[in-house]
Amino acid sequence: TTYKLIANGKTLKGETTTEAVDAETAERVFKEYAKKNGVDGEWTYDDATKTFTVTE
């Protein structure tokens, strides 16, 4: 399944996707990606669109 991340960070803005077996796995991947890019904010997830959003 393809999951999408929308990053609304102070230093990183944009979108990326990952293939994962479930939302929990995708969330781990995206949180690691955000951490590597210095983004720390509020996370939301929309199951209907398989989209995570992080906003600083």
Rank of each mutant, 00 (worst) to 15 (best):
22 D>Q: 03
33 Y>V: 05
24 E>I: 12
6 I>G: 02
37 N>M: 15
30 F>H: 01
23 A>S: 09
32 E>S: 08
1 T>S: 10
20 A>C: 09
41 G>D: 02
2 T>E: 07
25 T>G: 08
7 A>R: 05
11 T>G: 11
52 F>H: 01
40 D>L: 12
7 A>E: 04
5 L>H: 01
11 T>C: 15
33 Y>I: 07
41 G>C: 03
16 T>F: 15
11 T>V: 12
23 A>D: 05
14 G>V: 15
55 T>I: 10
38 G>M: 06
11 T>E: 09
17 T>K: 08
21 V>H: 12
16 T>P: 04
44 T>Y: 09
24 E>C: 13
15 E>F: 11
43 W>V: 02
37 N>E: 06
47 D>C: 07
9 G>E: 03
11 T>R: 07
10 K>T: 13
20 A>S: 06
54 V>S: 01
14 G>F: 15
22 D>A: 03
51 T>F: 02
38 G>V: 03
1 T>L: 10
24 E>M: 11
15 E>D: 06
15 E>A: 08
30 F>C: 01
24 E>W: 11
55 T>N: 09
8 N>H: 12
31 K>W: 06
31 K>S: 04
33 Y>P: 00
5 L>K: 01
51 T>R: 03
2 T>P: 04
29 V>S: 06
12 L>C: 14
6 I>H: 05
36 K>T: 09
56 E>Y: 09
8 N>E: 09
53 T>W: 10
10 K>L: 14
9 G>K: 04
48 A>S: 11
54 V>T: 02
27 E>V: 05
54 V>A: 02
56 E>S: 08
53 T>F: 10
24 E>Y: 11
29 V>L: 12
2 T>N: 05
40 D>F: 14
30 F>P: 00
11 T>Y: 14
53 T>G: 03
22 D>E: 04
11 T>W: 13
30 F>A: 00
29 V>Y: 15
9 G>P: 04
42 E>H: 13
13 K>Q: 13
17 T>S: 10
42 E>L: 13
44 T>N: 08
11 T>Q: 10
46 D>M: 04
38 G>E: 05
17 T>L: 07
28 R>D: 04
32 E>A: 13
19 E>Q: 14
31 K>M: 08
21 V>L: 12
37 N>T: 06
22 D>N: 12
35 K>V: 09
46 D>E: 06
26 A>E: 00
15 E>N: 07
2 T>G: 04
26 A>L: 01
55 T>K: 07
52 F>N: 00
28 R>L: 10
55 T>M: 08
46 D>Y: 04
39 V>W: 15
27 E>C: 14
45 Y>D: 00
37 N>Q: 11
19 E>V: 15
6 I>R: 06
1 T>P: 06
38 G>N: 09
33 Y>R: 03
14 G>S: 12
18 T>H: 07
8 N>L: 14
23 A>T: 08
1 T>R: 10
50 K>M: 07
4 K>D: 02
4 K>T: 14
32 E>T: 08
47 D>T: 08
34 A>G: 03
3 Y>S: 01
47 D>N: 09
12 L>P: 04
38 G>D: 06
16 T>L: 15
18 T>I: 15
51 T>P: 00
22 D>W: 03
31 K>I: 06
38 G>C: 07
49 T>G: 04
26 A>D: 00
34 A>R: 01
32 E>L: 10
48 A>D: 11
6 I>A: 05
17 T>I: 10
